[in-house]
Design a protein around this nucleic acid. Structure first.
Lengths: 126, 126
DNA sequence: AACCTATTTTGACACATGTCGAACCAACCC
DNA sequence: GGGTTGGTTCGACATGTGTCAAAATAGGTT
C-alpha cells in the first residue's frame, strides 16, 4: 500500500446514494413509466427470493432493526450464499451495513420500506 | 399466493393449503419461517420485473381496476411477452382474468395486494 | 509473529427467466 | 365456409440468478 505523504489519498467512494424517496406513485394512480417501473421493480425483486425475505425479516425483527450476520445466518444455505443475499438487499437499498470490530451488522432502511408499503397500501384501497 | 379464492381455470398451483388471508406476519414481527417466506416471496417476485410492474399498474389504474389486454399492451415488448407476464401475475394471485366476448379482461385481486401492503407498512412503522 | 473466527469475494455450475417469432385457439364478421 | 382481429401457447435462445467450495480479507488473541 503506497502511503506516500505527497500523494493525495484519492478516496473515491462510490457513494451508493439511495435514490430519492418519493420514488413512485401508488400503483393504481396511473400507469408507471418505464423508469419508475425499473426502479420500483428493483426493490420488489430484492424481496422476491425466500432466503432474502427470511434474512430481511430476521434483521427487521431483531432488536432495533439491526442484527449481526452471525445472528441470522441460519436459513438453510451456506454462509457465502447468506453474504451474497445480504449484499443484494443492500444494493436494493433495503439494508445498510456497518462493521463493528469482528462483526458486521445489518440494519433495515425504514424509508425505503415505507415507500414500498405506500405504493401498495394506497393501491390496496381501490 | 396467500389466497386464491377464485382464480379462473388454469390451476397450475400446488395449492398447499387454503389459508385464508393472514398469509404472514409483518416482516418485523418475527423471522419468517421457510414456508411463509416461500409464499410471500412468490408475490413480491411477481412485482419484481419492470414490465410486470407496468402491466399491473396499468390494470390497477384503469377504471374499476380492470382492463382489456388490448388497453395495456403498449409496454415495449411483444404481445406474447405481455401474455407471458400477465400469466405470471395471475399465477401469483395478483390478477384474475375473464374472457368477455372477443376480449380478455384482467382485474386486480385487492385482498392479495392489501396483504402485501400490510406486511410492509406495519413493518415500516418501526 | 502465528493462529483463529467472522465475513466477503471468486470461480464455477445448474437452473430459472425474459424475450421473440411462429403456430395455434377463440370469437366475431362477411 | 373463409377471413380478420385478439390473445395464448410452443420452441428456441441468451442472459440472469442461486448455490456451493475454495480462496481471500478483516479483526482479534496469544
Amino acid at each position: 500500500m503506497c502511503q506516500n505523504r505527497f500523494m493525495s489519498n484519492t478516496e473515491l467512494l462510490p457513494v451508493l446514494e439511495s435514490e430519492a424517496e418519493p420514488c413512485c406513485p401508488p400503483l393504481d394512480e396511473r400507469p408507471l413509466t418505464a423508469e419508475e417501473a425499473e426502479r420500483t421493480a428493483r426493490m420488489f425483486k430484492a424481496l422476491g427470493d425466500p432466503v432474502r425475505l427470511r434474512l430481511f425479516s430476521a434483521v427487521a425483527s431483531h432488536r432495533n432493526g439491526e442484527a449481526c450476520v452471525c445472528d441470522i445466518s441460519d436459513v438453510g444455505v451456506s454462509q457465502p450464499t447468506v453474504s451474497h443475499h445480504l449484499k443484494k438487499l443492500k444494493e436494493a437499498g433495503l439494508l445498510s451495513s456497518e462493521r463493528r470490530g469482528t462483526w458486521v451488522y445489518y440494519r433495515v432502511e425504514p424509508a425505503v420500506l415505507a415507500a414500498m408499503g405506500a405504493i401498495l397500501t394506497k393501491a390496496a384501497s381501490v
